[in-house]
Design a protein around this nucleic acid. Structure first.
Ligand code: ZN
Ligand code: ZN
Ligand code: ZN
Ligand code: ZN
Lengths: 166, 166
DNA sequence: CGGATATTGTTATAATATAACGTAACATTA
DNA sequence: TAATGTTACGTTATATTATAACAATATCCG
């Protein structure tokens, strides 16, 4: 039950995203190897496409990209890969967008909260213990056993807000 | 910016639900009248069907019920009513279920959080200031302007857990 | 190798939601 | 009340997201 001390910031507009991608794939490789999970060519490629940026991406978008690459792909192709990646903790599903985004710290037990910019589409993953404990408190009072939390905040990120101001 | 002091409890198994329904519809009538919103026959009926119980209900379920009542109804019929009811603050959409549930306190400015039992399907609406302020704190640190929060907790309610224990 | 298991291919279909356009009901005011 | 504008509803078609079912292939292990 480890927990991050410093939740991720919103991805800066000018950050070096190539390192995000290579780092994510390296972590995924290592984690799967260690856990005996089979990160096949297809699954690896889907993960790579998801990590192409910090914007959650839809299943059919991914499907179209696979098809354009010449791969034989149908909806089950992509959904099965997404299932594997989610069960392995390598990606998250953003329920409010029906879209998928890479996990910032796979392998760690964490509740994820997402802040999603409605302008640029970027999503920041957080792991705020205060939110989690506030929910736990309510659950305790209700006698409710928590299985899964869906916490997604839509709005405007700092960068987009500054640019939209006259 | 009023806020409830005593968040609702999980609906008890044996509560008198008829009063929930009549109360909800009376409130809706009064609120719409006061706000100049047109709670038409169709919209009223859809709201009533949603309040039939405390389980979020899907759009196509509602559609089927309308059809069985002899009303001419197609998907747009129900989705337009749902849009009206949501915009008027009379119902909430449960994103993780693609389903709709009556609001417990329409007319009041409130962030809603839902605790949803995976066994009985019942949903409890809460308005926990601690959750809201924890999110606000994160948002402030990120420079993020919050527009909409989606907070849905799935799990097992006290009643169902007691019944599932050997 | 050979049989078991896991992954992928393939076709069809389910479930949720919206676009587009016409008609009817209602409201406003001349 | 008739003309007019507005809102709501009817209707058909289609978009979007996701899964069922079964066949073919690849991978693992004794
Ligand atoms: Zn990046
Ligand atoms: Zn994560
Ligand atoms: Zn009730
Ligand atoms: Zn509410």
């Amino acid at each position: 039950m480890s927990r991050l001390k410093h939740p991720k910031q919103f991805p800066a507009a000018d950050h070096d995203h190539k390192t995000c991608i290579t780092h994510a794939l390296q972590e995924a490789e290592a984690y799967c190897k260690q856990q005996g999970l089979r990160l096949t060519e297809l699954r690896r490629r889907v993960l790579e496409l998801i990590w192409a940026n910090h914007q959650p991406v839809g299943a059919y978008d991914l499907l179209e990209q696979l098809t354009r690459e010449g791969r034989k792909a149908a909806p089950p192709t992509i959904y099965r890969s997404l299932d594997f990646l989610m069960q392995s903790g390598l990606i998250h599903r953003i329920t409010s967008l029906n879209a998928y985004v890479g996990c910032n710290h796979p392998g760690l037990d964490h509740a994820a909260q997402f802040f999603i910019c409605e302008y640029c589409g970027q999503a920041a993953e957080m792991d705020d213990a205060q939110i989690v404990s506030a929910i736990a408190k309510d659950a305790k009072r209700l006698g409710f056993t928590v299985e899964k939390r869906t916490i997604e905040v839509a709005g405007i990120c700092a960068h987009c807000r500054h640019h939209s101001e006259t």
